[in-house]
Every structure is written in C-alpha cells, then in structure tokens.
Computed example of a mutant assay.
Amino acid sequence: MTSHRPYLLRALYEWIADNGMTPHLLVDATRADVQVPKGAVKEGRVVLNIADRAVSGLEMSNELIRFSARFGGVSQTVSVPVGAVLAIYARETGQGMALPDEVQGEDAQDVSDGGTESTRPTLSAVPSASGDEGDLSSGDDGDDDPGDGSDRPRRGPHLRVVK
C-alpha cells in the first residue's frame, strides 16, 4: 500500500485552512532532498508557514511538498519530501498532528535480531473463550457473564457472526 502520510497532510491542511487558521509544517531539515533556506533552520528543524497568503504555487503530491515563499524579503523555492515532515499544526491553537516515523521501504529489517526478522506485525487467530471458533460472541442468551466464576467486568453489546 502507498504511504498514508501525504493523505493525512492534505486533509489536516484543509481542515486547518477551513477553520480560518494558519497551517504550519515542522520539518526535519537534516533529511535528504530537503530544500529550505539555511537561515531558517534551527537545531536541524524548520517551521514553515504554508497558508495561502504566505506561499505561492503550493503543491502537495504524494512524494513532495513544494512552494515559493519569501524569506527575508527574497522569494525562494522550498521543496520538502513528505517523509521529512514531522508535524502539521495550526499556529493559533497548536492543534494538528505529529506524524510517526515511517518504515523505510518494505524490506525493513529488525536490527536487534541480526536483521533476519521483519519489523512488520503479524496477525493470528485467537480462539474464543467458549471454544466455539465460528461464533464471535460469548453466548447466545444475551447474558454477558463470562460464566467461569472470574471477577471480570461484564461486557457491553458485542458483535456476532450472522450466517
């Protein structure tokens, strides 16, 4: 599957702009292919105002965010790979999202295990408590008591497989 990062960035940008606030990106300026004015970088990071009134020609593709903006009165082109964006937020409220690090490529290896195991989680079936694996509910009588004498709290409504 493709990365979800560019979709989240575009959606949050639109949400922030639709609410009349100023969208800002926090960017890791040490990443490869990040093109930002060196004077704007502090401690390897840069905050970019990407509001319509602050930039021109804003493009947010699945791979790259590109626009022109004025820095110190001089118009400059900014180019940021989507993977270098650490967060997007509204300047006025701080509301937004910090984006998690992405696994680089599909062949990522777990270094702690000698690089032999994949870091991707695996899914497996979990047997039901009643032993009936075809029914996802804990009983057909509507009683949510686990029936094993344990002190587990009663569960609310639940899903059942309908055939």
Rank of each mutant, 00 (worst) to 15 (best):
E59P: 03
Q35W: 02
V36L: 08
P37M: 09
K38G: 10
T30S: 14
A54F: 04
T30V: 01
A32W: 10
T30Q: 11
A40T: 15
P23W: 04
K38F: 12
I65F: 09
A51D: 06
Q35D: 00
R45M: 12
M60A: 04
L48M: 07
V55P: 00
L25I: 01
K42A: 12
Q35C: 10
P23T: 03
L64N: 09
N19P: 06
V41N: 07
Q35M: 12
R53V: 11
N62F: 12
A40M: 12
D52H: 11
I65P: 02
L58I: 10
H24S: 05
I50K: 03
T30H: 03
K38P: 14
D33Q: 14
M60H: 06
M21F: 09
E43Y: 12
A29N: 06
V46E: 07
H24V: 12
A51Y: 03
V47C: 00
I65W: 08
I50Y: 06
I65E: 03
E43R: 15
E43I: 10
F67C: 11
E59I: 11
S56G: 07
D28E: 07
R70W: 04
K42Y: 11
E43S: 15
A29S: 06
V34I: 05
S61P: 04
V34L: 09
L25V: 07
V36M: 00
V36R: 02
R31C: 13
R31Y: 02
D33M: 14
R70H: 15
M21T: 08
S61T: 13
V36Q: 01
N62Q: 14
V46C: 03
A17K: 12
T22S: 09
D18Q: 14
S68P: 08
L58N: 01
N62V: 12
V46T: 01
V27Q: 02
G44M: 11
A32Y: 12
L26E: 08
S61M: 01
R31V: 10
G20E: 04
L64C: 04
E43L: 14
D18P: 01
V47P: 05
A32R: 14
G20V: 07
N49R: 01
E43A: 15
P23A: 00
G39S: 13
A29Q: 03
D33K: 14
T22N: 06
A51H: 01
G39I: 11
V27I: 04
V41R: 06
E63Q: 15
V34A: 08
L25W: 04
V46P: 04
T30P: 05
A29W: 00
E43T: 12
V27F: 00
P23R: 00
A17W: 08
D33E: 13
D33A: 15
N62H: 14
A29L: 05
R70V: 09
F67K: 08
F67W: 11
A40G: 02
D33V: 15
D33H: 14
G20S: 01
P37E: 05
G57R: 11
N19Y: 00
F67I: 02
T22P: 07
V34W: 01
N62G: 13
G39H: 02
A17I: 09
S68R: 15
A32M: 13
S68W: 15
A51Q: 10
V47T: 13
T22I: 06
G39D: 13
E59K: 13
T22M: 09
